[in-house]
Design a protein around this nucleic acid. Structure first.
Lengths: 200, 200
DNA sequence: CCATAAGTTGCGTGTCACGCATCCAGTGCG
DNA sequence: CGCACTGGATGCGTGACACGCAACTTATGG
């Protein structure tokens, strides 16, 4: 998060990575879901101000570059849960952590839509969401005091939560749905923890 | 399923598709998770008895070819749920449908391991599992009489079930775990429908 | 038996990932 | 303050690949 507290080198490296992934996402959005093939590596590199060779020192496919932001964000979800007060019940802690983590700031509609509507990007996007599961499962296991090696509950719950986030995202993107992303998340997550009855 | 009841053309086409995907998976397994790059399109085509050009009339990437079986299987899960008796409670119906669908026959350990352990295949594998969610959600919505457009419960539950299947698969593949796949599935799915208490 | 549709194959092209060698800038030490 | 070193950036060359196109072969239906 903080650019300080790092080597100049490391800082510049992260900046480069960010510039490339940002440029990739921007160009992809410009071309739309059906023009992904028109986004050439050369263009991404140029837009990011680096050489094409450098681009694939960081990413080995356009998909990876475009979804890098999602990946990075997902990878950190576990920490958000760990940051919740220890006494808080699991469901409340997860909901709070997820909402806090995925709505700061409110995600970019165009970017998310691009990623989730483009078949060639879906695999990478799913990988990104799935990356959240490992850390999440660990954090859940800590909170419930279960052993992840023998008990499937943490991993299954983490997967369910990740799935709920995806579903909330899809729902939030649908035209005509004006609820905030936070609300969509809350509703989706409530289905995970209270499968008995859907609200209202 | 039945080769009869189809055009000679269609039959031959499916056979070709199957031959290619089977050859691709077999070669991938031979090389192991770290040698995927060594599986050349030329080899796959040769092993399947077709020209390289034909191979990519059917698949546009090695990953797609290797995971084709998983994809096809996942796409059919919804039907399995619809085939359950209408009066059966949702949880029992889902568990029965999933177990019946994913253990007939018992999946190939080597193939599943290859797919889930190879980073380059994970995206495609996740896409395959995710493809199950759409039909599953529809079937769940029918069974609960909810409107998928307004109620997130069917989609979230479908995603949770798909996630549980993935987790069960991972657990089943872990060395030292000798439970049957059906048992792993049952345990994982119980976490989805009864999140209150893990059955240890 | 013929006309048409559908599938297969070979070829050519544009793109890409990546190993390797080189160059340049930031870093830490004397 | 300068210097050797480490690590990232760049250029080049290579092997592989996806896909459009056109010719060829085989099923299908009249």
């Amino acid at each position: 998060m903080n650019d300080d507290a790092m080597d100049l080198r490391t800082r510049h490296k992260q900046a480069t990575r960010e510039a490339i992934s940002l440029a990739a996402l921007r160009l992809a959005i410009e071309q739309g879901p059906h023009g992904l093939a028109l986004v050439r590596v050369h263009d991404i590199a140029e837009a990011a101000g680096v050489s094409p060779r450098t681009y694939n020192n960081y990413f080995s496919s356009r998909e990876e570059a475009i979804c890098a932001f999602q990946s990075d964000q997902s990878r950190r979800v576990g920490e958000a849960l760990r940051a919740r007060p220890a006494g808080e019940p699991l469901d409340q802690a997860v909901v709070a952590a997820v909402i806090e983590h995925f709505t700061d700031p409110e995600p970019d509609r165009a970017g998310l839509r691009m990623i989730m509507d483009t078949p060639a990007l879906q695999g990478e996007a799913l990988k990104a969401f799935t990356m959240a599961e490992g850390p999440l499962a660990t954090a859940i296991a800590e909170r419930t005091g279960s052993d992840p090696a023998r008990d499937l509950f943490p991993a299954v719950t983490a997967a369910a939560v990740a799935g709920a986030i995806r579903v909330a995202g899809r729902h939030w993107l649908e035209p005509g749905n004006t609820v905030s992303f936070a609300t969509a998340l809350r509703r989706a997550l409530s289905c995970v923890f209270f499968p008995g009855r859907p609200p209202e």
